[in-house]
Amino acid sequence: MNEFEVKDCVLLTRMSGLPPALNLRELRDRIAMCHPDVIYHHFCETTLAPSFDYPDYRNHFAVWAKHSLGDEILAERLGIIDPYAYSSTEDLRTATLEIIEERLSELSMVPWARAGHEFYFMKAITVVFDTGERIHHPDELDSAISRMTSGSIYFHVLEARRRPPIGLDDFSAWLQNFEGDWSQYIHAITSIDVTFYTLPELQKNLVKALKLIQGKKRKRP
């Protein structure tokens, strides 16, 4: 039976090579032409960034629309985009551009950011480490997850969705191939709405959901 290999990951951020956007039209143009890793970075890798408060939105485009362009309507429309609901980054790009195009058509003037508040297009290199830890059985999953770093949670739950099987976290993918019926576990994991949690919160919710199932299993006669 396959063991689950626990990985950890960190990001090394770099510039995309695109000039910063000063207004909404430039944002649209740069999103249309940027590398897919740039879209991914500003939508998905934001979770790994340190933050004291809950950010207004989980993607950088929505945050910039609100705070730098002062366009709350656009911010709300961009903010609700769930990047994991799209099967490819190209689809995500198309959906984002559609929202921006629509907003541009509604406005009589193109909104501008103040000097010093430009949007910088970035991307990142993901560095993946093998921690050497292995999970041998699904019943060990909850305690193993509780010991993981935020980088491991990000890698196995969020980053996993861009790797085959696309859209699925690593834990569920492993459980699907593990001997026996682990559908309850998979259901518990995939039912968690990952969008609004910080990584430590996501970790707590995963552990809680798995413990709940194990508790029910134990109570069964």
Partner: peptide, 22 residues
């Protein structure tokens, strides 16, 4: 230090991809 080492590894591997396995 980790970021420097990662960057050095990336350059020495003539990195083109977005992922480095260590």
């Amino acid at each position: 230090l980790r970021e420097y080492l990662t960057l050095i590894l990336f350059l020495l591997r003539k990195g083109k991809t977005h992922t480095i396995l260590v």
